[in-house]
Write a protein that binds this DNA or RNA. Sequence first.
DNA 1: CTCAAAATGAGTTGCGTACCTCAAAAACCC
DNA 2: GGGTTTTTGAGGTACGCAACTCATTTTGAG
Lengths: 347, 347
Amino acid sequence: MRDEVATAPLTLKDIARQAGVSLATVDRVLHNRPGVRPDTVRRVREAIERNSFQPHVAAAELARGRARRFAFVMPSGPNLFMQQIEAYLGEMAGWLAARRLSVEMIATDVFDANALADCLEQLAGDYDGVAVVALDHPSVRAAINDLVDGGTEVVTLVSDVPSSRRHHYVGIDNIAAGRTAGALVGRLVGARRGKVAIIAGSLALRDHAERIFGFNQVMASEFAGLEVLQVEEGRDDDAQSEALAARLLRDHPDMVGLYNVGAGTPGVARALSESGRDKEVIFVGHDVTVLTRKLLLSGVMDAAISQNPGHEARAAVRVLLALARGEPILSEQEQIRIDIVMRDNLP
Amino acid sequence: MRDEVATAPLTLKDIARQAGVSLATVDRVLHNRPGVRPDTVRRVREAIERNSFQPHVAAAELARGRARRFAFVMPSGPNLFMQQIEAYLGEMAGWLAARRLSVEMIATDVFDANALADCLEQLAGDYDGVAVVALDHPSVRAAINDLVDGGTEVVTLVSDVPSSRRHHYVGIDNIAAGRTAGALVGRLVGARRGKVAIIAGSLALRDHAERIFGFNQVMASEFAGLEVLQVEEGRDDDAQSEALAARLLRDHPDMVGLYNVGAGTPGVARALSESGRDKEVIFVGHDVTVLTRKLLLSGVMDAAISQNPGHEARAAVRVLLALARGEPILSEQEQIRIDIVMRDNLP
DNA sequence: CTCAAAATGAGTTGCGTACCTCAAAAACCC
DNA sequence: GGGTTTTTGAGGTACGCAACTCATTTTGAG
């Protein structure tokens, strides 16, 4: 009992013969070159459809000659998550080399919209594709659109600019991530009542704001017994976050839940441990790093919401490559899932 | 501030020149063909190392000519999970065709070790790679080893045969999955006390047994307040599982948790809903399907442990392809994660 | 009908590798 | 030293497509 799923041993020559035209004409149609009558275009297209012909990527890749260059535009500074993405790109080095792809990292101040926009503008023409950890700002949007118009493939990474004409967004739905965090805190707190604190990096960051929105949504609709405190901003900094958490714990002896929206998790965890209340306060944060790993294992942290950075790095490269080649994107594959990571399913 | 990650514009001709030999000799070394002095082999290898040369996959693929054939050996019968895998392979049709890969589905009775072994033996020589939902049995192990010896790449899918010489296992760690389920049930039950029931497909299935093992491990060590009932076997069947669940609910009014290890989740859910105790009994099962999706959304089901079937299908194909090409495997990419899926992070 | 413009055919070259043949050179044996 | 075997070189062909040239045919406008 065998069931064929896919085959395609045809070549362009076969298509040309079937369409009753020459190879040159098929080539013109395939690459949208001018000088072909609409009727002829139709005949060729039909022959391609009829045989569900797919150009042999290996042959196409070999024939085009020049290598492809991709750029990853990422925030400068000691950001662990970004370092991880870079590390994962490094692991792909062999894969990239075998496909004659080069990936270059470009660091900019991601909080400065104009600097980011300038940086993007400078890339025009030099790269076949750009992945950018974007900032949703008019000048960045314009820069992205300019790149797209110039023929560069653009994907946004981690943080989206939905209003731009970027070809793809590689990252999670942050509202859903916040909802997930909320549901976890609420459910793990259980029947107890008390207060829930939120520490974010900055409310000006789109992803943080969205997470908080989702978190509050769930808390309001499903966990009426829990009172959500005003959001505190820790600037994604360990020391600041620790101080904030310590103060919150002191001021609210009835705190039962704590959600850290951005970075600074180690600091928050320290405050929690030193208060001696790490077992009673449910603590949920984001991203699995060496540090959060330990916190999950020791039980200080109850769950981490994670967007797999390795997956994001690879997905960005794959999407850029598929776009550049004109291949369809396997959307299910490239979609970044919201991972709930607890002690027993640590990757 | 730019930082190169990977490049490789060299060709075999460059390697030949650097090593002071001809293209033919480089070719001989690269493909382990005989007739080259050890010293010459070393020189060529060094030149390859020194330049971290990577053959251009597109060129290699084009040159080898013939297409590759892969076989997926899967259980016959109306298994939703397997249908999903097949569906995802269908979605890859374009991707496969563009690479001149063919994937064929072969159905067998996966519970009959000898039938499975026979089926595998018949594939020898016809396929470049085989992915098999295996059964851990001596004759299956022998069949897998025979395939490997015959030069066929073999990966086990979903269910492993660790003692065989298969090249790779695409699936999750089922003990960890069971542990995760246990931790979820225990934590979501919260401070309450009572009984926890387990319904499995069959204790003879390796993956089910492992999940139960992990589940019990966690319950024993961390949730002493919960009494785990004896495992019931529902044969992965909806009706049987429903009857079992109904009986368990009747016999144990103090049941607070329910873990369904295999299929049959809709049946269990029906029993739970009809008992009117779906809100108080924490229900954790496996896999996200159209049906479990609804159950998660309605709240009957509290969490699903999921191994992404789309990921498994694609990973199996990618691994087989990488093995056939002699490329390294991106292990982090191909590792199947244990997904915790709750209402708010439904994919 | 004429002539220019548009459309098409026929052909070439090259991409980097696999795989093959045959001859020449080197190494080895006695 | 001669003869044999092993090792190496040189070269060719093929893979399927991209990208190009140039000649030829077809089309449409006037």
